[in-house]
Design a protein around this nucleic acid. Structure first.
Lengths: 136, 136
DNA sequence: CAGGTTCGTTAGCCAAACTAACTGTGCGGC
DNA sequence: GCCGCACAGTTAGTTTGGCTAACGAACCTG
């Protein structure tokens, strides 16, 4: 069961990733997603979250800022740290990517028969639960 | 439904990927997997399958060969082409990675209750079917 | 057997990651 | 209160891995 689920999940994720082509590099899209989901954060926290060295995050954020997808400002309480958060444009771009993937996936779901869809629907909670446990 | 499945599948794939750490780069492990699953193949076919330029595959295969994970030989029928296939060591490495992921995932499945496991089991065929259709 | 085609490799360039070193800011001991 | 240390982010320089362009060897066709 583990092996079958592993293969299917990996394959589905790969197919989904192929639908999510933006003009951004993988590290850029990943950083942008982190900033959106975890709210305004410091560059150091972002670097740690992305498991990347500080100089790399400087560069990634600079490019995202050039495109107007994030904003960066000095923290008034501690002027060493700089905070970063998404702009409406950044959020919109992520939304478009997600919607494109959902459209593609929905089309696949349409191709299933009613019984299959019902079984998948019944398992959605389980799959969700499986991935929600604290990530080890 | 599409959105929930997308999120869960993406997250599960990411968690699985984190368990699969080898000393190899992503392109190396991907190429090795392709060679294993599609049998002996020419370098050009491998490059096309990996959606990568021919010079890149030369480099990737050279590194895999250094580690003894694949072997490369000239095709006797057409001495321009070189075939590549996995060694027992290469297959063993892939097997270890898969097993490590399966062990991790099986432990998570153990944490589910019986009803959840039953619902997931009933959906396995569906998820499999979903990813088996010709990839667009 | 000469010309053109195909396969893989070599050469050279660019993007993106890293480490090491620097700047500017905060903080705590004397 | 100032002096020294710690910390956040950036700059500088290197390494890695991808690409395109050009090349050599092998094949095929007229």
């Amino acid at each position: 069961m583990a092996a079958r689920l592993r293969v299917s999940a990996t394959r589905l994720a790969r197919l989904l990733r192929r639908q999510g082509d933006t003009g951004l590099s993988p590290s850029q899209i990943s950083a942008l997603t982190s900033v959106e989901t975890h709210g305004p954060m410091t560059l150091g926290a972002l670097a740690e979250h992305e498991r990347v060295a500080p100089p790399s995050i400087t560069n990634v954020v600079a490019k995202l800022e050039e495109r107007g997808l994030v904003v960066r400002w000095a923290d008034p309480a501690d002027r060493r740290v700089t905070q970063v958060s998404t702009t409406p444009a950044g959020a919109a771009l992520l939304g478009q990517v997600r919607e494109r993937k959902d459209v593609w996936l929905a089309a696949r779901l349409e191709a299933l028969d009613n019984d299959e869809r019902a079984r998948l629907a019944a398992a959605l909670d389980v799959i969700d639960h499986l991935t929600r446990v604290e990530q080890t």
